[in-house]
Each structure stands twice: as structure tokens, then as C-alpha cells.
Simulated scan of single mutants.
Amino acid sequence: MINADEKITNTPLSSTEQSKLLIFVLLLLPSLFFIVGIIPAIFLIFGLVMMKKNGDFSHIETAARIYKGYLYLAVMGSGLFALYFATTLSLSDRWHRQFEEFILSTALAGIALLYIIFLNILFLSPLRCHAQWVEANGIFSGKTKTPTDTNEVDIIKGERLRTFSVADELIKWAKLKEDGHITEQEFNDARKKLLQR
């Protein structure tokens, strides 16, 4: 999860951190040309979409864990192939071809390990440091999103207010407060809005 030295802040990502994310995406693009790279990218995209939808950073953490697990499987598979080719290298007359396959398997395992390192340094580290900001405002946002006030009292619109006097409306709101249908704060908000018109 989050290291002790990584402090969660509710500030926007700096341009350097946003550049790291862009570099990670650019490094991820070549792997998308192979079918193998599409699957972990889909997990990351799904994690980002779910985080944006629910405002919960744990979706990114889960997507990154799945991404790493997928790459660890690739490392183990490539490593097993490399081990197989290394042990049968001297037993075969085709040692040159098996040596090439050994090198290719080792390179694939190394590339998968590099992608795990890239994920940690270029993707997760900047996002974890700003988890609260990312949850609330998004990754590339520089300004705080203004939350929609769901408690705002909806009073009669301007056109309809002309047919009623402000005093009549205040009496209606006072009655609602007395009967316990609205709170004192809602009454005060409605009164303030009515008197400002």
C-alpha cells in the first residue's frame, strides 16, 4: 500500500508528476500492439473509470495489483521457458536456435519486470501521493470541483414568485418549519433567498 514516506496530500499533481503519468502511457503503448499488453491496460483503464465514477482510490490500487499479477505470471512463464532452454542447450544439436530462444525468453521476463517497475514509479507513486485529490477532482484537474449542494433549498422560481408575495412565501415556509417538515437551517436559507429577490 502506501509507504510511510509517501504522504497523502489533497493537492493537485505537479507537472512533473503528470509528466510521469504521460511517460508511463507512452511506454505502455508499444505493448498494446501485442495482444498480451492489451489485457493489463484494460485493467488499469477500468480502475481509473471506476475511481472516477465512485470517487474511491482503492479501484486504482486493485487495478494495479491485477496488472502486477498479470505481469508476474508473464515473468514466471518467460523465466520457465528460459530455464528450459538453458538446461536443454547443450543436449541439442540445434544449440544456436535454443540459445536465441533462451535470450528471447530472458528478455521477455526482463521487459515484464521493467513494466512492473514503471507501474510503481511512474503511475502508482504520483497517484498515491495525491490520492485524496485524485479521488475528488481527477488526475489532470488543477482546480477543485465544486460539490453540488444537495441540501440547497429549492424555492419557487422567479417567474412564479411574481404571482405570490414574499410575505406569503415566508408564511408558508414558517408553517413548514413549525410542522417539522424542514429544519431551522433550511428555513433560514429560504428566508434569505426570498428576501434577496
Rank of each mutant, 00 (worst) to 15 (best):
N3F: 09
E6N: 14
K7H: 09
S15Y: 04
T16A: 05
F24N: 11
F24A: 09
F24E: 05
L26S: 13
L26M: 13
L28T: 12
L29A: 10
A41S: 15
L48W: 13
V49N: 07
M50D: 01
K53T: 14
K53H: 13
F57R: 06
H59L: 09
I60E: 13
T62F: 15
A64M: 09
I66K: 15
Y70T: 10
Y70Q: 02
L80G: 02
F81V: 07
A82S: 14
A82W: 03
A86T: 03
D93A: 07
R94F: 05
R94E: 12
W95Q: 00
H96G: 00
E100Y: 00
F102V: 13
L104A: 05
A107W: 01
G110M: 11
L113F: 02
L114I: 07
I116H: 02
I117K: 12
L119D: 00
L124K: 06
L124A: 06
S125P: 02
L127N: 08
H130N: 11
H130E: 10
Q132K: 15
W133G: 12
I139V: 15
G142E: 01
T146H: 04
P147K: 14
D149V: 03
D149A: 03
E152F: 00
D154I: 15
I155R: 08
I156H: 04
E159C: 08
R160T: 00
V166T: 14
A167C: 01
E169A: 12
K172R: 13
A174K: 12
K177T: 03
K177W: 08
K177Q: 11
E178Y: 07
D179I: 01
H181T: 10
E186N: 03
N188H: 06
L194E: 01
L195T: 00
